[in-house]
Simulated assay, not measured.
Amino acid sequence: MTNTALTLMQVCDSNFPTGAFSHSFGLETYIQDGKVYNTETFAGWLNSYLHGVLCYNDGLASALLFDGCDVFELDRMLYVSSLSRETREGTKRIGIRMLELLIQLNPSDVLENYRTKIKRKTAFGHPALVFSLFCKELGIAKSECLSSYFYNSISSMIQNAVRGIPLGQTDGQRLLFSFQEEIEKALIKIDLLKIDDLGTSPPGMELSAMLHEDLNVRLFMS
Rank of each mutant, 00 (worst) to 15 (best):
A20P: 00
E137C: 08
F42K: 10
L207P: 01
T2F: 00
V71Q: 15
Q104S: 04
L219Q: 11
L74V: 12
L198V: 08
K136T: 05
N106R: 14
L215V: 03
S24W: 05
T200W: 11
A123V: 13
L105H: 03
F134S: 06
Y56G: 03
Q104V: 01
R115N: 06
C135W: 02
G199A: 11
L176G: 01
Q32Y: 15
L138T: 12
Y79Q: 14
H212L: 10
K185R: 13
E73I: 15
I154M: 14
G172N: 09
R85D: 07
D70P: 05
R218D: 01
T41K: 05
C69S: 15
P166A: 02
P127E: 03
H212M: 09
G19E: 07
S155V: 02
S178H: 07
D58N: 14
A161C: 05
R88M: 01
A141Y: 00
R218P: 01
D33L: 13
T91W: 01
T29G: 09
I188S: 15
L111Y: 10
T29C: 10
P17T: 06
R218L: 04
T4S: 10
I31G: 08
K119E: 14
C55H: 06
N152D: 09
D58P: 01
I96E: 08
K119Q: 14
